[in-house]
Design a protein around this nucleic acid. Structure first.
Lengths: 336, 336
DNA sequence: CTGAAAGCGCTAACAC
DNA sequence: GTGTTAGCGCTTTCAG
């Protein structure tokens, strides 16, 4: 399918009786160039009359910019997190007329990763990693090539630059405090087996227990896998513990939160009467179950928006902003 | 931040001792041009040595192609549907080296919709609407401009071209048949108030009832809004009906499925002993609740992949393929 | 088989 | 204030 014959700035220039340069000056509001009002008006009229749209590809070529940012994610990312962050990214980039180019994080060697190729071939000007597993090796490689990038993550890498994350772990203390205020005696933890060194959830939990004067008991910590059934069984085992059953559980992710509720349903344990549950993280399904699940909500949209601002700043100015930490919020629903 | 000085095809040509044209021929595998093996090898070596990557922006300019497809969605789309379709689209486009440009479906007048602007300024070569509300007006406008587009939707527009959808409604008959085989007497329906003429869910339900010899009873049809609490209350009212309680429910969407289960939990109704539930649609949360929810699963990934193929075909050949209908599948879990 | 050269639509010195 | 002009990096006739 052929594109309609496109009208170029040359056509506009001819129509308005000025030069191409003048058209460019006016349309891009170039500073330091003064244009007579009637000239400007003539050009604007011509633009409208001819229905002219600057060819961004040509513009990009001249400026050596793609006007596009690659957003890379792992394929198995929690949809909700990613979509929400994406919304923020989108809006942040949109303000500056950058577009979102969706990429996946799949490669054998970083050298032939898709996002590297895209950068090298000028299809994107920078990269935002949204909940993608980026290791030191990757970051060093990108640094060595001078590729602008920003990481948005729940587990900051600790590099302290080009990164946006959240203080959700700090709120675990609030949750434990809340449990305590409700007279809870035994608090359990259900979360994934830590797969990264900087996954601080379990540690934050333990510290919060100690902070509030609870003992840390290993039998109240269940670490689960990718397999939902396995996780569910583990939680059931925890809850069937006859000696001493926990009367509160902190679930380290939305998935573990849902599965904890599921386990309770299976055992006919009443929430929150028999057990209180709070999940770390956001999901729109928390409201769709009974009872609605309390949680530490992440500022996902804002994280995306901030990441967009950051990457553009890096591209424009070359200086990398410090780690940006945005605030999470402990939302009490009916499960706690 | 400045890009590293880029190496161009000119550099490669010089290095290999050939002309730019030859480099282009070799790298693009231009048919009808025979290259001597040693020349080809020399160029390939030079490419590797200089770490050359063709500038896609320049290429796009010459070819009058952005090598990018705009994916537009409503902002409030069900994440899971969209993400799954997106995966398919992504893989389909990737094969042909097209990239995914994410756009939102927000505008006052179609004339200044973002996706129109993107097309006009050569940032995208075509559009895939993924679960976005596109009306006749929009389609006519795009047709008049000759903009290539494809619609992926659960409710086909009936135009019969440039569209991919699924036969999930046909499986409603299977669900009712399944209920019947289990000795179910009263089947209820819970779904959203139809907002589009081509939303055939309720009608498919009624037809399926009749087909299997059930009566259509209005008091067993609950139509809900965006408000989850309202919907839940409506379903509870349905279930508290003393005269005659349904012993099976077809939920017309994942959200309604979840809310139906929630209502049962609130009333302590046992699933599937007291009531059987099946939802229309896909969600990864069906496995995270108790009991796991049976459903008619949509071929989301394949729909996306197909849409990608279709849009590229339209762009390349200008001819629009007929409506493509992909198969859904009734999956029995524990709730039915 | 390979090279020279034109030009896609735009921006940005540099002239006037 | 506005016009002239030289490319950006690529593809593609057209010559040889």
């Amino acid at each position: 399918m052929k594109r309609k014959v496109s009208v170029s700035s040359k056509d506009v220039a001819r129509e308005a009786g000025v030069s191409q340069a003048t058209v460019s000056y006016i349309l891009n509001d170039v500073k330091g160039v003064k244009i007579r009002p009637e000239t400007r008006q003539a050009v604007l009229d011509a633009v409208k009359k001819l229905n002219y749209h600057p060819n961004q590809i040509a513009r990009g070529m001249k400026l050596k910019r793609a006007m596009s940012i690659g957003i890379v994610t792992d394929r198995n990312v929690t949809n909700f997190y990613f979509m929400k962050v994406l919304e923020g990214i989108r809006d942040g980039l949109q303000e500056r007329n950058y577009s979102v180019n969706l990429l996946y994080n799949k490669y054998d060697s970083i050298k032939d990763a898709e996002f590297i190729k895209y950068y090298n071939s000028t299809r994107i000007d920078g990269i935002i990693f949204a909940f993608a597993a980026v290791g030191d090796e990757e970051m060093e490689y990108m640094d060595s090539l001078g590729i602008p990038y920003v990481i948005v993550s729940t587990h900051p890498s600790g590099r302290g630059v080009g990164e946006v994350c959240t203080d959700h772990l700090d709120h675990i203390k609030d949750v434990i405090g809340y449990f305590k205020s409700k007279g809870v005696k035994n608090i359990a933890y259900a979360g994934p087996v830590p797969r990264r060194l900087n996954d601080g959830r379990l540690e934050a939990f333990k510290n919060a227990l100690i902070h509030h004067g609870y003992d840390v008991k290993d039998e109240f910590i269940v670490l689960g896998t990718f397999d939902n059934n396995e996780v569910c069984s583990s939680i059931i085992r925890l809850l069937e513990n006859r000696v001493c059953r926990p009367d509160a559980i902190l679930a380290a992710s939305p998935r573990f939160g849902m599965l904890t509720v599921k386990a309770c349903h299976m055992l006919d344990i009443k929430i929150p009467q028999d057990i209180r549950i709070v999940a770390v993280g956001s999901s729109k399904f928390f409201e769709l179950i009974h009872p609605p699940l309390s949680s530490i909500e992440l500022p996902l949209y804002d994280m995306g928006f901030k990441a967009a601002e950051m990457i553009l700043k890096i591209i424009d100015e070359g200086n990398i902003e410090a780690l940006s930490v945005l605030g999470s919020e402990f939302i009490i629903r009916e499960s706690s």
